[in-house]
Amino acid sequence: MTDATTSVAAAQAVRAAAARLLTAAAAGEPCAPVRDLIGADDVHAAYAVQELVTQARVAAGTAVTGRKIGLTSEAVQRQLGVDQPDFGFLFSDMAYLGGDVVPVGAVLQPRVEAEIAFTLASDLAEGRLDEAQVRAAIGHAIPALEICGSRISGWDIRFGDTVADNASAGAYVLGPVRARLDQFEPRVAQMTMSIDGVEVSSGTGAACVGDPINAVVWLAQKARELGEPLRAGQVVLSGALGPMRPVAPGQTVRAEISGLGSVTFTLDEPNDKEQV
């Protein structure tokens, strides 16, 4: 097989994987993993699929509102056989405010985790993109709940699957508190998360690759490397502070993050929602 033939076959596989995921999302029915098409750990192919899915969503009228960082837990990285996080895009139709009702059909196979979100006050496109620059670019920290979702049946994922599937992004909920980094230190934050009043997860800022700021540094560098730098006004979900848990229709999820307060949502039947 020539190099040209191999390249054509690889491009066809990427398009087929994107089509499979887009069809699953449109139908509301999970699909088979895409690693049979692109491999389980081909980072380049997985992000190429993610790019096609993102382009399709933007073409359909959905705006990019930021990024999410996944695989920030060392345990999850070991499970998937990788040594770095991944990222996906956030879109305007994923965004909810604390107290909102999130429709049951908004996220396939929903699982929830508590995170610290950051809003960017300036671009992260030039310079060293080190910790000092990232801290200076952050406008505020916000308590957040990420509702992860998988278009892949039974969450049967490997690294290539989750990257291709937009890092298993589903929806996100931002709380009411906004804190500057001179008022709040993410690394030492304490988190508890409950479902219907029962604690189901806990952790600290240090559980997110040592410091949520470290995750944003990684993302800023990776996003620029791939040609889509982080921009002012975007939201960044920095990664889970504790274990992810499944959530069922009718349940209410609440997270408390020290220094930031609480954020909550209910997964239930559709209502009009207020966009962030």
Rank of each mutant, 00 (worst) to 15 (best):
T72Q: 04
T72C: 01
T72W: 05
E74Y: 07
E74L: 14
E74Q: 15
A75R: 11
A75S: 11
A75G: 10
A75Q: 14
A75E: 13
A75H: 02
A75P: 11
V76H: 09
V76E: 12
V76N: 06
V76C: 11
V76A: 11
Q77R: 15
Q77D: 12
Q77T: 06
Q77K: 13
Q77N: 05
Q77A: 11
Q77Y: 04
R78Q: 15
R78C: 06
Q79D: 09
Q79H: 15
Q79F: 08
Q79I: 10
Q79C: 02
L80D: 08
L80F: 14
L80N: 07
L80Y: 12
L80H: 09
L80Q: 08
G81I: 04
G81C: 08
G81N: 10
V82W: 01
V82N: 09
V82A: 02
D83H: 14
D83K: 14
Q84V: 12
Q84E: 15
Q84D: 14
Q84W: 13
Q84R: 14
Q84S: 15
P85H: 05
P85C: 04
P85V: 09
P85W: 02
D86N: 12
D86E: 12
D86V: 15
D86C: 14
D86L: 12
F87K: 02
F87W: 09
F87A: 12
G88K: 04
G88N: 06
G88Q: 13
F89S: 00
F89N: 00
F89R: 13
F89Y: 14
F89Q: 08
L90W: 03
L90D: 04
F91W: 03
F91Q: 03
F91V: 04
F91K: 02
S92Y: 00
S92P: 05
S92A: 09
S92N: 13
S92Q: 04
S92R: 06
S92H: 02
D93R: 13
D93K: 04
D93N: 15
D93T: 10
D93Y: 03
D93L: 02
M94R: 01
M94K: 02
M94Y: 03
M94A: 00
A95M: 12
A95F: 02
A95G: 08
Y96A: 00
Y96R: 01
Y96I: 04
Y96M: 00
Y96L: 01
Y96C: 01
Y96K: 01
Y96W: 13
L97E: 07
L97C: 04
L97S: 05
L97A: 11
G98T: 08
G98R: 03
G98D: 07
G98K: 00
G98A: 07
G99D: 01
G99I: 00
G99F: 01
G99C: 00
G99P: 03
D100L: 01
D100Q: 10
D100R: 00
D100G: 06
D100C: 08
D100E: 15
V101P: 10
V101R: 11
V102Y: 05
P103F: 11
P103R: 10
V104W: 04
V104S: 14
V104F: 02
V104P: 05
G105F: 11
G105Q: 13
G105L: 10
G105P: 11
G105W: 07
A106R: 14
A106W: 09
A106F: 08
A106Y: 03
A106Q: 14
V107L: 06
V107A: 07
V107Q: 07
L108Y: 09
L108Q: 13
Q109G: 09
Q109T: 10
Q109D: 05
Q109R: 08
Q109E: 12
Q109Y: 07
Q109I: 07
